[in-house]
Design a protein around this nucleic acid. Structure first.
Lengths: 192, 192
DNA sequence: GAGACATAATTGCTACTCGAAATTATCCAT
DNA sequence: ATGGATAATTTCGAGTAGCAATTATGTCTC
């Protein structure tokens, strides 16, 4: 519980501060939780866009998420469609309005700041943060929610179809290139 | 508003996610804003511990901060002492209870994760993040709130007294070593 | 030094948010 | 068929955020 390195502690404070600054740039009539929900839905693959998984991602309760989604739906950012596979479940989709809003996501401004500050060191920064995230996940036992292609169930290029060349061995579903880069609730990082 | 580098965008998402994970670890009966306030007060020098500057740091209004502080005072984490220098102002101080709570700050756990994930690369990570913060500050015109010794008004070792060897040329006040590492609302980074 | 104006902090008020618990509907295993 | 899990929602109460108004104090000008 006590880091020995002052640099690591400073980095933690900086992460905290950068996130808050990014939040101040949120212009749309959306609160922080609603932004986070949109970001998740924009990046999650089609198997992962449900209220329950969103609640897992956000680390909040299903009740709260249900409210968040109701607010987003009322404002026209999200649609809730009953699932064809599971009568209890709902599939979430972003509207055009949300797609437009995501182009003004303050995280994009943060990404620009990173780019300007680090130049081609951005990859090293992302690496360090990704490794940190894995430690954090391991520590508190949550889901990784990493990109599909990094998962141990991902099988690259096993189908002839150019539209869905990859495959998920867990869900037994063909995957497009775009699917591969989306985040997945079932992601289990490939063996270290 | 659109970063060219996928790595920078991923890094921004990771910062966002790490911050949220850290927040989930908050155990005390304190909300996110209250934790942020305690963190600021724990790190700010004696010239910077006022409600108005805290509001600047948090990017929220003075009214909101006043309520946050009232909640913290009611729970025994903060004391509000009328300022001797300015009858309108209040000086804020952490109680023993708060000092204890800071030892369980979830940011410490994040710092540990960083340490484990990056090893001696933590300094490079902190550097990259600090540079990013400066860009973010420059972009939205806020205060830097960086460490006193990094300021252009800081004069190192100009006093004979070992208890306060340094000096602030802006406030014309002697500074201890501890003062030098605290964050200051008046900080203006030394010339690039 | 009196008045005008700026600043520090707080409070009244309203709208909103969160989470725990209860509720409803559906799925699945036996 | 039935009991138990799971998905989503709703009810309800406590707490929070921010705008605007208020009070008190400092500062500048003439």
């Amino acid at each position: 519980m006590s880091p020995r390195s002052p640099a690591a502690l400073e980095a933690a404070h900086l992460i905290d501060r950068l996130e808050r600054l990014a939040r101040l740039g949120e212009d749309e009539p959306l609160n922080a939780a609603q932004w986070e929900a949109l970001r998740y839905l924009a990046r999650a693959n089609r198997f992962s866009r449900t209220p329950a998984l969103l609640a897992d991602y956000l680390g909040s309760t299903r009740g709260t998420v249900s409210r968040t989604l109701a607010a987003l739906e009322a404002k026209g950012y999200v649609e809730r469609v009953p699932s064809a596979r599971d009568g209890r479940s709902v599939e979430l989709a972003l509207t055009k309005l949300a797609e437009e809003a995501m182009k003004r996501d303050p995280l994009l401004a943060l990404a620009e700041d990173i780019e300007r500050a680090t130049g081609d060191g951005a990859a090293a920064l992302a690496d360090a943060l990704r490794r940190t995230l894995r430690h954090a996940i391991a520590r508190n036992g949550g889901r990784a929610f990493e990109a599909c292609f990094s998962c141990r169930h991902f099988r690259a290029g096993v189908h002839a179809s150019p539209r869905a060349p990859h495959h998920c061995a867990l869900l037994d579903e063909p995957l497009s290139d775009a699917d591969g880069t989306a985040i997945c609730a079932e992601n289990e990082p490939a063996a270290a």
